[in-house]
């Protein structure tokens, strides 16, 4: 190329990817402050167990180590809780999967035609406004008191974030990119596949994280109400509470919390794996 006038390309032109400046270099490692909080909470916990509660009322808040010695380290109890957690996880994941598929399909349908959006969006909002708990007995009434009813509760609770996030993701496509596709005669389906859907993926994953947490809530709530069939975590918690087995109760609550955390973290990881390479998210 004889007419090239400018200097050979150097690294100068590639933007160096600079991490947003840290607020202030701190000398304390980041795990230390939460550790201090945890220690404080444990201290207050022991204080309440041993000082404020007398022997006869200590079951209301057993000291932390007794949750281990009295429940978590007891093989039978641990097996019960583990099995119940597994069942709850399965219900939550099935419900979540259905909510993802339904929610994305609903949003895609709305994004494809104005009239579909105006006729369907109000129902998404209504779904969000109904206290699902009020519907739970009716769901049992209609669908029985076993697995299917539990899954339906999960779906109803987890659906809305999928619908709204997917719709937002599709509608936030840059107008310039839309015009580029229009200019080159892209069919609606092509626009959906090559532009709108990929553009919506970060929002879809954010929705999944929210919905995953809600699906766990739904599975446990469903469990409280629908006792037929094998017990999940909700049924177990409710039984322990009825029989004043407080170490077991606390152990089951810890299991439920861990389940929520693990699912939330798993979807966060999935999101980073799929869209993290190209998506410049503000939270990191």
């Amino acid at each position: 190329m004889t007419t090239t006038v400018w200097a050979p390309k150097t690294e100068v032109e590639t933007k160096s990817i600079v991490k947003p400046a840290a607020r202030r270099k701190s000398r304390v490692p980041s795990f230390v402050p939460p550790l201090i909080v945890a220690t404080a909470v444990l201290a207050v916990w022991y204080l309440v167990s041993y000082v404020f509660l007398d022997q006869t009322r200590r079951f209301l808040l057993p000291p932390p180590h007794e949750i281990f010695t009295g429940a978590i380290f007891v093989p039978d109890i641990l097996a019960d809780i583990g099995l119940a957690s597994l069942r709850t996880t399965i219900v939550a994941l099935i419900g979540l999967l259905i909510a993802i598929v339904l929610g994305v399909a609903w949003a895609v349908a709305m994004s494809q035609a104005r009239w579909l959006e105006t006729s369907l969006f109000p129902y998404a909002v209504i779904l969000q406004c109904i206290p699902i708990l009020a519907l739970v007995p009716l769901i049992g009434f209609w669908f029985g008191f076993e697995y299917p009813a539990r899954v339906i509760v999960c779906v109803m609770i987890a659906l809305f974030p999928m619908v709204s996030n997917t719709l937002f993701g599709i509608q936030s496509v840059d107008p310039g990119q839309r015009e580029l596709f229009r200019l080159h005669g892209a069919a609606r389906w092509t626009v959906l596949r090559k532009l709108e859907f990929p553009n919506a993926l970060p929002a879809i994953f954010a929705g999944m994280r929210i919905s995953a947490g809600l699906a766990v809530v739904g599975a446990i709530v469903g469990d409280f109400f629908f006792r037929r069939g094998e017990p999940g975590l909700g049924a177990l918690i409710s039984n322990y509470q009825a029989q004043i087995q407080s170490e077991e109760l606390f152990a089951a609550i810890i299991a439920a919390s861990l389940l929520g955390i693990v699912i939330f973290a798993a979807f966060g990881w999935l999101s980073r794996a799929v869209v993290g390479t190209w998506y410049e998210s503000s939270d990191r």
Partner: peptide
């Protein structure tokens, strides 16, 4: 056969340079 270059580069952020360059031929 019209090329249209906007003020904004309008690249698809999930596609590499190569895949972005292929886009229009793909659409056609």
């Amino acid at each position: 056969r019209i090329g249209y270059v906007f003020q904004d580069a309008t690249l698809l952020p999930w596609r590499s340079v190569e895949r972005n360059v292929e886009l229009l031929a793909e659409l056609h």
